[in-house]
Design a protein around this nucleic acid. Structure first.
Lengths: 236, 236
DNA sequence: CTATTTATTGACCAGATGGTCTATACCCTC
DNA sequence: GAGGGTATAGACCATCTGGTCAATAAATAG
């Protein structure tokens, strides 16, 4: 029991930072203040990726602000490799957009360089233990940004303005099939009605949505919460 | 300075919980352990909404598990009123999906009923001060769910499988215009080429994406990260 | 009971769309 | 300089799409 805990603590770490002074500072800090094993360091993202493939560390500390290939892209690439590496992002700024994007692409933690050394060790500890760690202040920032991005999305159009609300139930069914890229004939078969009827519905839909063709109708539906209930869908 | 802090602390609170015992328990706790002013309580969401309109509290504690109108819907409705009320969700379960949805629709905090009373007071404190508060354990859950929902979305298709990657630059431009619901003629004008050329490109796009018409092409593009860079877009 | 809304269908037509084949010109690579 | 990929363009044609007008039946609202 004790052994396995100790074993877990001896997680191997790779540090990536284009500033050599920062790099060695963090390295020393970790070596002195913690049990972690810094197996390698890198001053560029591309070198880092090679090292990660070679050493397969448990933890990577990745500076976000780097020239050439930036840290976020690097994180995305590493995550794509699916090596089980757990990445902690590291920057000087608490820009919510950066935090959001880092967490989105799979960073397991996000730390500011200005934070106390104990916080860094704690973060590594938590992440090494399989958790996701964001300091309270950053997590607060994240959520504000997160909620804001929703408000703009969903609350931008009120119910009265959302033309989708004026569609009848049958028209919604037809539109639903249209958003799956089905032709008049196909819709007619699916709904057991004639092609002409479908055309009538489609025409009514166009008028209500104030569009001229199915592509625009589909786009309107997608942009105004028509099939939102289906699945979580996030994109930047 | 001191006064304004004290003033802030005297935030008015409304508590909503269909279980009367819980309700009065929380009420007592807040009245004894904190400076907050419980101006009203409600055992149903609809009553709560009326009370909120009447009292305009700073804080609402909202139980999520309620019959009739559930707490999440209630939160969404209250947020839509845009009264500046700050809502803290309250449940017995740390279901990540619930947490995610609560935060999505604008809850400023999320607390488990099993948590220590001090934690509840602290949460109200933070939220009353304008912050968003999630206890570390819940925030961890949230992030796991958050990242998972991405992985399914973005990593579901590898680069080789994503047929969009086989499009030439010109074809991408054409597709981009198609996803805006523009006709052959319109595309031709925008790109300063003939309508025939557009048709050729479109046909090539269809073959590469293995679809039969523009609607399907647009849907494929939308579902496979074609215009993802534009805006944050989240939906459930 | 009448008016309105909704769902249904037909007919007709212009124009848009999609499929196929062919052809030229440019650029890049081998 | 031959070959491959890309962008351009025309011709032809079947089909699909969208617009309009008209009509019936059922359900709902007033």
């Amino acid at each position: 029991m004790r052994r396995s805990l100790d074993f877990k603590k001896k997680a191997r770490v790779i540090i990536v930072d284009d500033n050599y002074d920062h790099l060695s500072g963090i390295k020393e800090l970790i070596e002195i203040e913690s049990d972690f094993d810094v197996v390698a360091t890198a001053t560029s993202a591309s070198v880092a990726i090679s090292l990660i493939k070679k050493y397969r560390p448990e933890i990577v500390l990745m500076d976000i602000n780097m020239p050439e290939k930036d840290g976020l892209t690097a994180i995305a690439e590493i995550e794509k490799l699916d090596l089980g590496v757990r990445i902690i992002a590291l920057t000087g700024y608490d820009d919510p957009d950066l935090i959001f994007r880092a967490m989105k692409i799979g960073a397991k933690g996000y730390i500011l360089k200005t934070m106390a050394s104990a916080q860094l060790i704690y973060a590594i500890d938590e992440v090494a233990a399989g958790k996701i760690y964001l300091p309270a202040t950053l997590s607060s920032r994240f959520f504000e940004y997160f909620q804001q991005s929703f408000k703009e999305e969903t609350q931008s159009v009120s119910d009265e303005e959302n033309l989708l609300n004026y569609l009848t139930q049958r028209e919604e069914e037809v539109l639903d099939l249209l958003t799956q890229g089905i032709t008049y004939k196909g819709v007619a078969q699916k709904l057991f009605i004639s092609e002409t009827t479908v055309k009538t519905h489609v025409n009514n839909i166009f008028q209500k949505l104030q569009v001229n063709d199915r592509t625009q109708a589909v786009l309107y539906a997608l942009n105004n919460g028509f099939l939102n209930r289906r699945k979580v869908k996030i994109a930047i």
